[in-house]
Design a protein around this nucleic acid. Structure first.
Length: 793
RNA sequence: GCUGGGAUGGCGAAAUGGUAGACGCGCCUGCCUUAGGAGCAGGUUCCUUCGGGAGUGGAGGUUCAAGUCCUCUUCCCAGCACCA
């Protein structure tokens, strides 16, 4: 009997695959259907942990499956290789970020190959290569030319630990998504992509995407559409008018004061008109000192009146006081609200504390604040009308405008860090921004920088960069020192896979037409409101510029679960529970590790799975059993029972794999192997079918066994076995009495009901049960269930 | 608070409205010996007077038949959250 020497088998098969180049995809192939399978390209952190296996090796199962179904599969990978860890390693250990990153990638390539993945490495892209980021810069230029990238002063989130600004999406619970530090708010001049211009389309186009509702809902919530009106409040004795956004214009008659966010652009100007400017300034700077979390945690409303400043309620014509308070957010709507304390919880709390008038305008028996519907009162000519119905007319009276507002903020893309794509912008002596002409791209990241955090961009320490700008553009011109958010790099990498070496264009139009959108995209659920949203925006922008052929980048999306540490906690270096797969791969083989990961649960229903060694052992046992079967191969034809087993396994493995339910597909393989175990002389043709079905899951062993029993070409170039659906001659029918199982009988497939009934009533236990009862009804589901109902219903 | 998604053995889980717990782990009993984190056979939801009975978070309902559909409820997870 053959010994299962997994190390030898892995070595030999991996060498065979590499030499024969069977995983290189011919993108121009016209004979087979193209199938683009994508997984999120990893950050080269240096340690390939079990989570990477879960991400890459399991997607690889599907790539192999689709290939054996006759598809021309594109299954590429690359590296999202710009990013903070490289730079932090530089600061901490004094290594060069570039060297650190590229060494990690080299190590990871070897490790990824050791999983037995069928990645086409000829399509690899590396986002920190100048050949790649040249096109990131070029695409930035296109967005800039079309006013989708712009520089402006705005309140932004700042991470004091990473010493950089962050996009809204990269802040969770007031903390930096990357390092967990509480973020601060600053008002700075930064680069933004105007994703808000696409809010509506990003929202509407979700409907047609074949994604799970939970993913779509999370994006919908993030984009956050609300309909209402924009109404302006004139400030007395000035030219200033303050627009507010409200979802309840019907309550305008109850607006008893106006509130501006502390970040409001007109606040300083209005403070000049007030008699308490100093108090206002103190309040505003006090708010700025707080972290976002501190601002939220303080439930008690705070604020300051702009004494001597008042605004006109456009409905009543009455003068109302003006406040600034941090419960109004600078970044949402217009940064100012009309406060209707009778019908809004927050305004009510504020008005109660500051003893401001509360006027009920929507009648109800409920206590204030009341936010429901009702008949208007205290609302002039509108009194007596239903609030919802009168809303539009009130907007008209106030000379306002019906509008839709979105919660999503523009995507802040500048970062005050070194290891990223340089923004292709220079400033003239007057400080105006200019694009760097494309002949100067790639605009290289300088090498002579000081990485140490000072709150300023490290690029500002580069003499070479300054000289470069002066040499090209002239005296007085200065560089942009910020780099791009790495989510910009990852917003288009899947386009580059199609044409990774093109020096004339970012990708190839004909190939994009053929291959887009990506058929199935597998990744982590943490990217639902980050990468997945950014990439959709970016793609839509490029679509509008006629640079890509489809309005959406991805068709199906699968969010996978998480492999936890053996202690059930999320793996992290600080907890010391990170599992390194190498030890298990050494001991049990790559195939066993892959299969165990595939077996623990459905891949497309994100769950958290604690890592367990015992599971890998079980897969090893299963594979051993398959090896042992080779000792019993014969040239016989499969009998009826074995044919039935083959058909059942075939159907189930195909259907389950298609839906990413690898766990049940593997269980079907186990059942088939067990059935085969019962044969002293096992038909070789049947065993070959088992190997073909096993090949996507255990690629090394299946390849080895296939060739050892006479397979000529790689098993991975073979097709999955096909079977005519065989109609079984007999089937098992469950006999129930009043819905409870009492017996089972074997009947001919097309036996008429009366024959089945007769057969059932001849069973002693059934006869006894029915003896004392009156059968009122008999339900027969052919080939499945026979139910005697005795009680009257 | 709002919006989604869940709850099935000791554990991971499986079940087009039709045999609940497939498959696997762990555990139990026995065997084997090269004493191995890798072998073999059998058992393993609970209760039981061994006839059966109960059972998919809880309470109702629809149905010949409910883990699955409906109503209410409890708890867990995720996303959003001072968003006007």
């Amino acid at each position: 009997m053959e010994k299962f020497d997994h190390k030898k088998i892995e070595q030999e098969t991996q060498k065979f695959w590499e030499e024969s180049g069977i995983y290189t995809t011919d993108l121009e192939n016209t004979e087979k259907d193209p199938y683009y399978l994508l997984f999120e390209f990893p950050y080269p952190s240096g340690d390939l942990h079990i989570g990477h296996w879960y991400a890459f090796a399991l997607t690889d199962i599907f790539a192999r499956f689709k290939r054996m179904q006759g598809k021309n599969v594109l299954f590429p990978m690359g590296f999202d290789s710009f990013g903070l860890p490289a730079e932090n390693a530089a600061i901490k250990h004094g290594v060069n970020p570039k060297e650190w990153t590229y060494a990690n990638m080299e190590r990871m390539r070897t490790q990824v190959k050791s999983m037995g993945t069928s990645v086409d490495w000829s399509k690899e892209v590396v986002s920190s290569d100048p050949e790649y980021y040249r096109w990131t810069q070029w695409l930035f230029s296109k967005l800039y030319e079309h006013k989708l990238a712009e520089r402006r002063n705005a309140p932004v989130k700042w991470c004091p630990k990473d010493q950089t600004v962050l996009a809204n999406e990269q802040v969770t619970d007031g903390k930096c998504e990357r390092c967990g530090t509480e973020v601060e708010e600053k008002t700075l001049t930064q680069w933004f992509f105007t994703i808000t211009k696409y809010a509506k389309r990003l929202l509407d186009d979700l409907d047609a995407l074949p994604w799970k509702e939970e993913i779509k809902d999370a994006q919908r919530a993030w984009i956050g559409e609300s309909t209402g009106a924009k109404i302006s409040f004139k400030i007395a004795d000035s030219e200033i008018s303050i627009p507010v956004f409200t979802t309840r214009p019907d309550t305008l008659f109850g607006a008893t004061y106006l509130v501006l966010a502390p970040e409001h652009p007109n606040l300083a100007e209005l403070a000049e008109l007030s008699s308490n400017k100093k108090e206002i300034d103190e309040y505003v700077s006090g708010v700025k000192r707080k972290t976002e979390r501190e601002r939220l945690e303080n439930k008690e409303k705070t604020g300051v009146e702009l004494v001597g400043v008042s605004a006109t309620n456009p409905a009543t014509g009455e003068m109302i006081p003006v406040y600034t308070a941090d419960y109004v957010l600078g970044g949402y709507g217009t940064g100012a609200v009309m406060a209707v304390p009778a019908h809004d919880e927050r305004d009510f709390a504020f008005a109660t504390k500051f003893k401001l008038p509360i006027i009920r305008v929507v009648s109800s028996t409920e206590e204030l604040p009341y936010s429901g519907a009702g008949t208007l009162e205290n609302s002039g000519e509108f009194t007596g009308r239903a609030n919802e119905e009168a809303a539009e007319a009130i907007v008209e009276l106030a000379q306002g405008k019906l509008t839709t507002n979105y919660r999503i903020r523009d995507w802040l893309v500048s970062r005050q860090r070194y290891w990223g794509c340089p923004i292709p912008i220079v400033y003239d002596p007057e400080g105006a921004a200019h694009l760097i002409p494309s002949e100067h791209l790639p605009w290289l990241l300088p090498d002579d920088v000081d990485f140490n955090l000072s709150g300023k961009s490290p690029l500002a320490t580069s003499e070479e960069l300054k000289e470069r700008v002066v040499n090209i553009f002239g005296e007085g011109w200065t560089p942009e020192y910020d780099t791009l958010d790495t989510f910009v790099d990852s917003s288009w990498y899947f386009l580059r896979y199609l044409d990774p070496k093109d020096v004339h264009d970012f990708s190839d139009q004909a190939l994009m037409k053929k291959w887009l959108p990506v058929d199935r995209y597998s990744g982590g659920s943490e990217h639902t409101t980050m990468h997945l949203l950014y990439a959709r925006f970016f793609h839509k922008a490029l679509y509008d510029l006629a640079l890509v052929p489809t309005p959406e980048p991805f068709n199906e999306r699968m969010n996978r679960g998480l492999i936890m540490g053996p202690d059930g906690q999320k793996m992290s270096k600080s907890k010391g529970n990170v599992v390194n797969p190498d030890e298990f791969v050494q001991k049990f083989g790559a195939d066993a590790v892959r299969m165990y990961l595939a077996f623990i649960g459905p891949y497309n229903e994100p769950g958290n799975y604690p890592w367990s060694l015992d599971g890998v052992v079980s897969m090893r046992r299963f594979l051993e059993r398959i090896v042992w079967l080779t000792a019993r191969l014969s040239d016989q034809e499969p009998d009826e029972a074995l044919t039935k087993s083959l058909i059942q396994a075939n159907t189930k493995v195909k259907a389950d794999t298609e839906r990413f339910k690898f766990n049940t597909a593997i269980s079907a393989l186990m059942v088939l192997a067990r059935d085969m175990d019962g044969y002293e002389k096992l038909p070789k043709s049947a065993y070959k079918e088992l190997l073909l079905l096993l090949a996507p899951f255990a690629p090394h062993l299946a390849e080895h066994l296939w060739r050892s029993i006479g397979g000529v070409q790689s098993i991975h170039l073979e097709s999955l076995p096909e079977h005519e659906e065989l109609l079984a001659a007999e089937s098992t029918v469950i006999v129930q009495v009043n819905g409870k199982k009492r017996a089972e009988i074997l009947v001919l497939q097309d036996a008429p009901q009366n024959v089945v009934e007769k057969q059932a009533t001849e069973i002693q236990s059934i006869a006894t049960l029915l003896h004392e009862e009156q059968v009122s009804r008999i339900i027969y589901v052919p080939g499945r269930i026979l139910n005697f109902v005795t009680k009257k219903s």
